[in-house]
Design a protein around this nucleic acid. Structure first.
Lengths: 221, 221
DNA sequence: TCTCTTTTAAGAGTCACTCTCATTTGCCAC
DNA sequence: GTGGCAAATGAGAGTGACTCTTAAAAGAGA
């Protein structure tokens, strides 16, 4: 009786090697390609239907039908309906970016650079930009998704916090480190929400910089 | 056809006047007393069962039976199962505390004082202390509750942010104000989780002070 | 005691999610 | 190619949170 574990590729088939996978099967096989394809089909169908009818008014069965798979397959790829929206495929990428920063850089600066890189990559192609916008609008509008997005941010924070702890020679669940990442990611999320709330009329990057600058000056305003 | 709106008393029958209510019915009637009583019965039953069998393994029907009410009544009092745990009855209290602070005090200091007051009141009687500990452990252990707790924190932040915005003469959804409250409440939540994670062996108040001090010095550590 | 209104219980229905099992399908010798 | 193997899928039943409707019960006030 084999455990099914189709999910969490954590990266599309562009990135060559994943440091987490236990020397898994090759990535060019027909099987792998079909999986990625199915995953994307489900996600596309979901985004389309969410945009048209709204999140709550779109049953998973409907998404399955639209993506031409069975409902059980949807749940095999995404543990919950929310997860269709909330990819955290970027976590490992950001972790690598952070590890690449000079060890003596102030943590706040390191994270600022990582954010810049990450956003730069994301906003480069219109594809990724559109998906980000759709996702953030769902985060704004759907309470269940917003709550999960927060949680997801916390996890990212914990991951990157571990790296910073290591770099500064502190225990991995040091209070200061945890508080630091909580503050930074909470602030990033809030600035992003501000951006979405205001119809994305200003550029996101300067908004993030303002937010992080406020943090750096000890929240004096 | 009257809309049922039993829920959200937002305060037990101790506090005399609520600034939000539209001059509602008196608070000493038998009806009101029974409502408060039912609400508490449900909550007590829930906490007892959660402690004994775990959150996920406790169906709402079971809670209803234990509290001797029908399942529909449970949902009339608490919109979701999570809400049985996540009271935000303290929000308005904290808002009043914040309004009572001197207008020229630094916002970070004001919130620090409010937290101290609030925690002081909460930890005074063993009743409230126990309920807080139970709640925070559920927040730690149950992802759904943790996510909602985060959300709830954000709402509190938005409420108090409005007061701070007013005080500093800024628009109510000013970026700086939003980032400020996001940082402060994110940090408070993280420090509280740290406290719970470490078995509550240290006092919470000093931990919060360390966390807020880190914020004040611009996250340098 | 008699109304009026609020609160409750009961029950049917929807939907997210889980588990199991039989069928299909890409994979890999041979 | 072909046959065996493991992985992926589909189908269906089951659980549990939550919604909505309706009729009975119970407090408030005359």
């Amino acid at each position: 009786m084999p455990d099914n574990d189709v999910m969490s590729p954590r990266t599309s088939d562009v990135v060559p090697s994943s440091p987490s996978g236990p020397a898994v099967t090759a990535k060019g096989g027909l099987r792998e390609r079909k999986k990625a394809q199915t995953r994307q089909a489900i996600r596309n169908a979901a985004y389309r239907l969410f945009a048209e009818h709204g999140y709550d008014a779109t049953p998973v069965d409907r998404i399955a039908a639209e993506a031409d798979v069975s409902p059980s397959t949807v749940f095999r790829y995404f543990p919950t309906k929310e997860d269709i929206v909330l990819t955290d495929e970027y976590d490992e990428v950001m972790a690598d970016m952070l590890r690449a920063r000079p060890a003596d850089e102030a943590p706040l600066q390191s994270l600022r650079h990582v954010m810049h890189q990450q956003l730069g990559a994301l906003l480069k192609d219109p594809e990724g930009q559109l998906e980000m916008v759709q996702r953030e609008e769902l985060v704004r509008d759907v309470p269940a998704i917003r709550a999960r997005a927060h949680e997801s941010m916390s996890e990212t924070g914990r991951l990157l916090g571990g790296i910073i702890a290591e770099r500064t020679g502190r225990p991995s669940d040091d209070l200061e480190v945890r508080v630091f990442t909580a503050a930074v990611f909470g602030v990033i999320h809030e600035a992003t929400m501000f951006w979405v709330d205001h119809g994305r009329r200003e550029d996101l990057v300067p908004l993030l910089d303002r937010a992080l600058a406020l943090l750096r000056r000890g929240l004096e305003f």
